[in-house]
Amino acid sequence: MVKVSVILTAFNEEKFIGKAIESILNQTFDDLELIVVNDGSTDGTSDIINGFDDERIKLISHENSGPGASRNRALKEVRGEYVMYLDGDDWYSEDAIEIAYREAKSKDTDFTFYQMINYDDKSGKIYENDWFNLNIFDESFEDRVFKACDYDGSIFDMSVGVCQKIYNTSFLRRIDAKFPEGIFFEDMPFFYYVLLKADRISIIKRHLYYRRKHDASITHVVDEKFLDTVPAGQELMRIFIENGWYDAYKFDLLAYKINGPRFALRDIEENYKVPLYELIKKDYLSIKSSKYYQDFLDNLGPVKKKFFLDIIKSKDYDDFMTLNQAKS
């Protein structure tokens, strides 16, 4: 057994994957394995991966299946006591794995957050933000172990990104943690399942991960991937309901479920607005016929409630836009 396994998934990352791999192989901590999943790349990604001669690398290649399926496949192969994730266009600081492992091991955590820092690929500038700085956690959370219920604010203000944590492998396997497959935004339901199953969490207020912002970044271009905000939200609801967490979190959960597709519909490229509207409408009509409909009416704030009802009432996207732009 090695101490840390790093799972790196890549689809057409020939511009960036070399740096990502080097950032792992050149760590100050070397008791690790790197599991690279080449998710059906059609560019030079495979050649770059194969150009590295290091016995710590294990390569998995399969047809394009998306990040969820790739991560699930890799997790089955993990031999490490702990596991971390890296996207193919990002990289670690040189001491990231050593710092993360020592924290997780010393506190025996189920998982540990660490800070990310942003890198703008066009300008070359590095910048921080509150979300990836974990600023929702005040000083009382530093150098301690806690559970989700110890946090007084909304858990839906936490950073959901899978790459911002180090996980105890035995814990993930014990709770049978899996990413939803076939959709983007798979991090989100995975995170909340893991979060609410965890008994021991800690944070590291140090920037260990460099997150690259570029033209093809999933959160930079609001394109067809954002259609998956609907199934991701459905999966989140299922997780909370099936695990008995719904009643305790429903006020914030329902707002969170509405806001993802609501903001996506506002910002998505024009040719995807109607398809996204239709997905949202189908989802909301199923909610209307369920026992949870009254909860949405009772718990949503006025803006989100109007959006919810306007979608249900509308005949089509144009009708929705007319209704939604009208004052209550």
Rank of each mutant, 00 (worst) to 15 (best):
M1V: 04
V2M: 04
V2Q: 13
V4E: 12
N12A: 10
I17S: 11
I21W: 11
N26Y: 07
G40T: 04
G40W: 08
T42M: 15
T45S: 15
S46P: 02
I48N: 00
G51I: 00
F52C: 14
F52Q: 10
N64V: 14
N64Q: 06
S65P: 00
S70M: 04
R71L: 02
N72V: 02
E77Y: 05
V78G: 03
R79F: 07
E98F: 10
I99E: 03
K105H: 04
D110V: 06
F111K: 00
F113L: 03
Y114G: 02
G124F: 11
I126W: 13
I126L: 14
Y127I: 09
N133S: 14
F141R: 02
M158R: 00
Y167G: 09
L172E: 09
D176W: 01
A177T: 08
E186C: 04
E186H: 01
F191Y: 10
A198F: 05
A198D: 00
S202F: 14
K205I: 03
R206D: 15
Y210N: 11
K213A: 12
V222C: 14
E224K: 08
E224F: 11
F226M: 03
D228S: 05
E235L: 05
R238N: 14
N243R: 03
N243W: 07
D247F: 01
K250I: 10
D252T: 07
I258S: 09
E270P: 10
Y272M: 13
D283V: 00
K288D: 08
S289T: 09
S289G: 15
Q294E: 12
F296H: 06
F296A: 10
I312G: 04
T322Q: 15
A326I: 02
K327S: 11
